[in-house]
Design a protein around this nucleic acid. Structure first.
Ligand SMILES: NC(=O)c1ccc[n+]([C@@H]2O[C@H](COP(=O)([O-])OP(=O)(O)OC[C@H]3O[C@@H](n4cnc5c(N)ncnc54)[C@H](O)[C@@H]3O)[C@@H](O)[C@H]2O)c1
Ligand SMILES: NC(=O)c1ccc[n+]([C@@H]2O[C@H](COP(=O)([O-])OP(=O)(O)OC[C@H]3O[C@@H](n4cnc5c(N)ncnc54)[C@H](O)[C@@H]3O)[C@@H](O)[C@H]2O)c1
Lengths: 210, 210
DNA sequence: CTATTTATGTGATTATATTCACACTTCCCG
DNA sequence: CGGGAAGTGTGAATATAATCACATAAATAG
């Protein structure tokens, strides 16, 4: 995999295609054209074909793509045909809602560790059976349970220090919900989720009709 | 404002600059160069200058940018020097965590309405004093309370129908947390938040060392 | 008042991403 | 079996975005 330099935007779109294809699968659609898929995903049909072409030929000319096959092929491309272990750091409002949520497991992401700094939370059992560890145990527990990705849902002030611990524990993927830009070495890939930035984009569009 | 065609990516970065500048303000930094700001935001310094140049000249040559002024200028650019009224639709796990969260109000976003389809939730009072209305009242309440942006936090299956109601009620900005691509007329601007897509990107990077 | 330093603003350049357009493959129907 | 019809795969053409590099402006020191 990965013969040319792949646009980051392509990777994001592949996820979107996959979600849509999974829905189609549930509606028993067996084959779909790039044109119909494009409409559902809100992109250009050629875009879909080109995105896929980076990784191989997955369709049948004159016919389209077999939905089931394409889902699996995209999973292979993204590295999703295996489970990924997650650690949640910070079990407040947001962190708790996230671990409770079923969509992660549905897509192959499993919470195998949870950490908080608040002693009154440590030892508590989460709905999925996981017991909250103290943040000081992070490094040991992360290694022990083979955690691949850390999720930061602590207050903004603590995010950088948590990120440092995660990196030290050997983690190279972080999903950061705190509204700060965390600094990590190149070996570690960070994705940020900040809802208020999305709201700002909406505000701009509403204000200036973009 | 908006003299040339502005890259969407520029708008997103402006939000990020603003967040960082607001932090700097709290640390009593008065003036900052594009170079230092760039490092903190993880972008190229020329990028910052070019992004700002779309909208005017905000810096002082040989000196840098006055932090406080720049924050306000970015707010003007994005249309954030006014309050924006939000409606939350779906007060489950995620929706409840969101309305409880203080960051929205801090950035000028105010929840002025909340809706759910579950009768047992209708009439309940949220921590911010807001009372949950039934989804059937959406159109009336949205108009009455001058809601500008709708936030969808319902199950995926209900997202499209909620979006339809919001559009019908005259809303042209939607923040969608349901993991589906909703279809709306051009007058309505939609931003999606899907954490699992971010996780997929991380998985790809970890798998293939991008 | 001049030289030096710093750091912006921006045209030119390079890099990246999207879209077009059509050759080519498969299917289907008569 | 031959002639559309449908729809992929992809090189070429656009379009968009990021970066460089330098002229220019302010501040400071001598
Ligand atoms: N709640 C939301 O809807 C929402 C929305 C957008 C962004 N965010 C961001 O997500 C983060 C969490 O938000 P929240 O509402 O859950 O906050 P919260 O205060 O409810 O929870 C934070 C949790 O982190 C724990 N914590 C603090 N320091 C820690 C440390 N060093 N190590 C481990 N755990 C630590 C606290 O004990 C607490 O349980 C914040 O940065 C917030 O800005 C939240
Ligand atoms: N909880 C998370 O951390 C999380 C993470 C990622 C994505 N999401 C997505 O966010 C959405 C909500 O997740 P959740 O965990 O809060 O689910 P939830 O089941 O806890 O809450 C959904 C709420 O929506 C209400 N609802 C259902 N149909 C409705 C309708 N037609 N109109 C108004 N309200 C309606 C339900 O009564 C319920 O209160 C889902 O689409 C989910 O996939 C959630």
């Amino acid at each position: 995999m990965k013969f040319a330099k792949i646009p980051m935007a392509t990777i994001v779109r592949l996820s979107i295609y996959m979600r849509t294809l999974q829905e189609l699968l549930e509606e028993d659609v067996e084959v779909i054209s790039s044109e119909r898929l494009a409409k559902q995903c809100g992109v250009n049909p050629a875009q879909i074909r080109k995105d896929l072409a980076y990784f191989g030929e997955f369709g049948v000319r004159g016919v389209g793509y077999r939905v089931n096959d394409l889902v699996n092929q995209i999973k292979d491309i993204l590295g999703l045909n295996r489970p990924w272990n997650l650690a949640m750091v910070g079990l407040g409002n947001l962190g708790s809602a996230l671990v409770r949520h079923g969509n992660f497991i549905k897509h192959g992401y499993v919470f195998t560790a949870a950490f908080d700094a608040d002693q009154s939370k440590v030892g508590k059992r989460l709905p999925n059976g996981l017991i909250i560890n103290h943040i000081s145990e992070l490094e040991d527990v992360v290694r022990e349970r083979d955690v691949h990705v850390g999720i930061i849902a602590t207050p903004a002030n603590d995010a950088q220090s948590v990120a440092n611990s995660l990196v030290l524990a050997g983690i190279n993927g972080i999903l950061n919900f705190a509204p700060v830009q965390i600094q990590v070495p190149d070996c570690c890939h960070v994705e940020n989720v900040d809802f208020t930035i999305k709201l700002d984009s909406i505000a701009y569009h509403l204000s200036f009709g973009g």
